[in-house]
Amino acid sequence: MADLSHGSADAPAHHQLTGIDNRKLGMWVFLSSEFLFFGALINNYLLFKGRDFGPGTLYPVELYDIPFTSISSFVLLMSSLTMVLAHSALARGDQDQTKTWLFATALLGTIFVSGQFFEFGEFILHGLKLNINPAASAFYMLTGFHGLHVVLGVLMLLVLAFKSMRTGGLSEAEGLNVELVGLYWHFVDIIWIVIFVLVYLIQ
């Protein structure tokens, strides 16, 4: 696979003191810092999930629909495959496949977020409001912020895909953008891998 992190002669110059494009290095540092962000939210949920907030109150764990969340998790996992296939196609110079896989990734991300909206809607209909107890607040904060990250990822994917459609293909310089969006997308996926087990499966 071609290395998309080193621009061509006509691409804008970026310092590479470390031998790595600074934008790519910046993305990895950003993702590394995101561990602390999501770690705090997961930590917050784990602190409150086992606590007793009095009789009659509702807890997220009572409403989990594991088969539904498992399918959502599978969808997000497969979006990582379509993302890496988009990156791989671009490295081979196959613009059509790049476009197709970028749209497929955005579609799978949209399906995941729609599932999350559906889940939130079901929970609220059952009475699990955001402020009913700290466990519910922590659950909505964690999964909501993750969903927001997915929405941002979908928007970035759509920008790249439509740009590719409009211009007939992505340039080598824009290839790095695909790689950076891909890194972000895979990170969102690995955070869900952790959330799925710690929040949904280990009760």
Partner: peptide
């Protein structure tokens, strides 16, 4: 960078 962030968290 990545593993240090993960381990720290």
């Amino acid at each position: 960078f990545f593993t240090s962030g993960a381990i720290l968290a």
